[in-house]
Design a binder for these strands. Structure first.
Lengths: 157, 157
DNA sequence: GAAGAATGCATAGCCCAACTATATAGCTAG
DNA sequence: CTAGCTATATAGTTGGGCTATGCATTCTTC
């Protein structure tokens, strides 16, 4: 399992990564009674991290289609969690911006989620914590690289 | 960032973990044109890893409701990817077992997925690979512990 | 500066995974 | 043998995801 440099082990590694990723998703979903969906939180988090942007760009960064993002933004707007700012330079477009109440709701959800999941992780050793933190960082760089590609309107690799 | 034993850093770590997890899920979803859904593959993988089991148990381990699993099993059965074996001891129940063709399909899907995602990960250093491999192992132990609890019919902690 | 192409978002209509609530069938105790 | 529990199935809803398409606006080009 640790003979790490050949291609086949990269295959196994990515396969395992995706597999454990799906299982963690189910665990997280089952761990919170929150009525709101992950997609909603993902969207607010993107706006928080990258700042206001147009709907279409938000869709590409979130890796969903533009109509899907239109629906999500509508949901978010209904809850008052984002604001739509008319783009002065282009009457077709809006800038979507996270509303403070949205950031607050995001934090509350995160706290609830973490509260529910912490029992599974609170016996991590310091080493294990650092391993997880580094893994998160590694994956994040790869995803962000892919996001940049997507952001410039490229197709799916 | 490394004053690692306090609660707040665990909160941040879990939050980051779940966040990057969702983004990886979107990347994976967008990376394959496969018509089949992740839930299908997750189910076969569970059967492969844990062996034949009853539908209800499969639902608990997969952390979905029993009706959801009934539907998934139906889908899998239509494709011939699982077998339903009558439980000799209980006429209400079946043992669900992965069919070889299902395992084959799972492998094919994994290969396709990995092929699509490898470009994002093929420049990993050996260190980074080992970090990811260890992180996968750590998360897996936590999920399996949670699974065992679920398997015995417990609620969501 | 108007016609046609390209762009940005919305709408329509679909599929599927997830849920709750409930029905049906079979097992098990008394 | 009946009461209740257990295992799966069905019904019906919600919501994220998609493609296809419509409509308004901007850009381009002559």
């Amino acid at each position: 399992m640790h003979s790490s440099t050949d291609t086949s082990s990269l295959t196994a590694l990515i396969g395992d990564l995706v597999s454990v990723n799906h299982r963690l998703t189910r665990l997280a979903a089952a761990s919170t009674a929150s009525a709101e969906s992950p997609a909603v939180w993902r969207t607010i988090a993107v706006l928080r991290d990258l700042g206001p942007m147009r709907l279409g760009e938000l869709a590409r960064v979130s890796r969903v289609s533009q109509p899907t993002m239109t629906k999500l933004v509508h949901t978010l707007d209904d809850r008052g969690w984002i604001r739509r700012i008319a783009d002065a330079n282009d009457a077709r477009a809006w800038l979507i911006s996270a509303d403070p109440s949205g950031l607050e709701a995001l934090d509350a959800w995160r706290d609830e989620l973490v509260g529910a999941m912490a029992p599974y992780f609170d016996d991590l050793s310091i080493d294990e914590r650092e391993t997880l933190a580094r893994a998160v960082a590694v994956i994040r760089t790869r995803i962000e690289r892919a996001d940049d590609t997507a952001r410039n309107g490229a197709a799916t690799a």
